[in-house]
Design a binder for these strands. Structure first.
Lengths: 354, 354
DNA sequence: ACAGCCGTAGCAAGCGCTTTCTATGAGGGA
DNA sequence: TCCCTCATAGAAAGCGCTTGCTACGGCTGT
């Protein structure tokens, strides 16, 4: 029924070993032989049996990319960029050689699924894994991750973090690309402070995520530096990284006494919800309330008014992570790189009413 | 170095066969034996060798999801929904059993990559493949796809189309879920006509895609039914499914003589670009120009004004495709289902000025 | 002219698992 | 009491491929 290596060998009148070597192209094969084999492959429409070959060679061409939420462009952009660095052809080159199967796995932000996917990839003896997105700050989960990653690394899987802080005390991760969330949030807050804002609400992400904490810390650093550290608790609301969370949190912020003149959102999606809430309260942006986001996703420039935010070079980071995963690029010394975040000042922030 | 089935067997003092059976759970094993084996698995931290097991069983637990653009939430939402139906635990159930590895592959809209990914999945003997997104209308590519899919189906891979028109003359595809793009576009256009618009610009997607054609056809049907079929060519501009295409096309539309009073965009992302262009021309939405999108992506409701669009039940469709791929749900008779599109009238459309 | 090499190709031994077929022991019916 | 049956476990034959080692010519060097 299905064509095997042996069939190709028979048709090309060579041994299976030779066919294998032609296909893998790492052993000298005479040109005439090679041509004969290739022709046979073509004529029989032969497709290598991946499991068999992975078993025999003890390696596979699977590369996994873990994301928290595949419906969120934040991850989509990184994953897409990584995938194009990893994927076989289509990146311009010819047909032969390192055709990796780059696949993205959606954890939905769930720690169990994260671990499960890692196990599944371990099962498949994945060649590499790119883990994106902020980590959970639960020590148990961190330990479980570290253990799992160590095992993967042991088995020869190259591991790269992208947009995720490095794992402490672990040499399993070949390279970590972390965004400067803290610095970005600090600069964003400083921008607001310079405009004259003093009461700044902060709609934070879920409590137990590193990304959330770093951004919040950056924000508070700036506030503290300006001598404004009193109302931290009452001006911060936590919620998931989605629009409705931004809406609800902003409603709450606006209803508290001593109303804020600006709202900083955990990310651009949350900011969109915040904008809606501000408007539904009959307030104008930025005249009555300034709003800012984080990430600079493509839609942010199209918000009305355009969203002031912090740009994260998602595509570049993803591409770099892809290259690192493929071993096309050498990891930085120490394995850790911090990627700068750039403040994008646009129409949604202005001086508070005077 | 790495733990194998035999190691587990030795530790549990049973034969490898028994361990295998415990792990696959489809053969009677005494409870005491099972417990012993499970304990050994745990103690040794055993992880099944996927390739080996796929090779021996001639099946794998890989399920591929092909998308055109992973950075586009249109695909992200479908893929995410499909993936949660397919993925192992985390969907609430316990630990055992059908833990499939649902992975999404990003074709970037390139026909070659589409085919390449299909080959790669064929190599891995994927259990199922979900193909999303509109198809290319190139006969050569369609034929190549049909051939490739036939081979996959032959090898036992279940194939499901999601948001993609059925492949003619092929029984390789187990089920096709197609969106009613034509009907949606028709109703959207009718809405505009009822408001009194007569000169309606259409920013279409790339020429050679089924989605583009169907939406355009629906639009023109409605126009023709209203006796407005003269200016079709001059009122249509084609471009990719992205924001800048919407911007550029709308600029062009607005600069042509006999300016349009409404712009219909190929999808919501394009509509965002269209809105920006309208604004940059010093025109107001919807007072001067109405704008409408398609898909009803999450951000559309947050546009200002909120975007009139056509809702496609992406999550439902994706989930259903996932279930079909898993064989959890029986394919409809004939294998083809058309999914209705719902008109969402919001603030971005209104009657043209007087 | 002969030994030694290099360039190629084949042999055969697994890789780690699944699964068919067979073996064994404990009960139960006659 | 003996045989048959059911429940459970093991033996062993692959699944299709890779790769270390061996084999075989024809060349080169002396």
């Amino acid at each position: 029924m299905t064509v095997t290596l042996a069939d190709v060998a028979a048709r090309a009148r060579v041994s299976p070993a030779t066919v294998s070597r032609v296909l893998n192209g790492n052993y000298p094969v005479a040109t005439s032989t090679r041509d004969r084999v290739l022709r046979a492959v073509d004529e029989l429409d032969y497709v290598l049996n991946g499991p068999a070959s992975s078993l025999a060679a003890a390696t596979s061409d699977l590369v996994g990319i873990l994301v928290n939420d595949i419906a969120d462009p934040f991850f989509g952009i990184m994953a897409g960029a990584a995938q194009s660095e990893i994927g076989g052809p289509g990146d311009g080159s010819g047909r032969a050689g390192g055709e990796k199967l780059a696949v993205v796995c959606n954890t939905g932000g769930s720690p169990e699924r994260e671990l499960t996917y890692l196990t599944l990839l371990q099962r498949q003896r994945a060649a590499a894994v790119v883990v994106t997105g902020g980590a959970l700050e639960d020590p148990d989960h961190q330990a479980a991750m570290a253990a799992k990653l160590a095992k993967l690394a042991d088995a020869g899987t190259r591991i790269v973090f992208c947009g995720r802080p490095p794992l402490p005390d672990s040499d399993a991760v070949a390279a970590s690309l972390a965004f400067d969330n803290r610095g970005g949030a600090r600069r964003l807050t400083e921008h607001l402070l310079e405009l004259g804002h003093r009461r700044i609400g902060y709609v934070a992400g879920p409590l137990e995520r590193t990304t959330t904490r770093h951004r919040l810390e950056g924000h508070r650093e700036a506030m503290r530096a300006a001598g404004l550290s009193g109302d931290e608790e009452s001006l911060t609301v936590h919620g998931p990284y989605d629009r409705s969370s931004g809406y609800d949190a902003t409603c709450e912020l606006l209803s508290r006494e001593g109303t804020v003149t600006a709202v900083l959102a955990a990310n651009d999606t949350v900011a969109l919800g915040a904008c809606a809430a501000v408007r539904d309260h009959g307030l104008r942006i930025p005249e009555d309330v300034s709003v800012a986001g984080f990430d600079d996703l493509p839609f942010s420039v199209d918000a009305v008014p355009a969203l002031t935010t912090v740009r994260l070079p998602l595509a570049e980071a993803g591409a770099r992570a892809g290259r690192l995963a493929m071993g096309k690029e050498k990891p930085p010394a120490g394995g850790i790189t911090t990627i700068e975040a750039e403040l994008m000042v646009r129409g949604s922030t202005a001086a508070p009413r005077g």
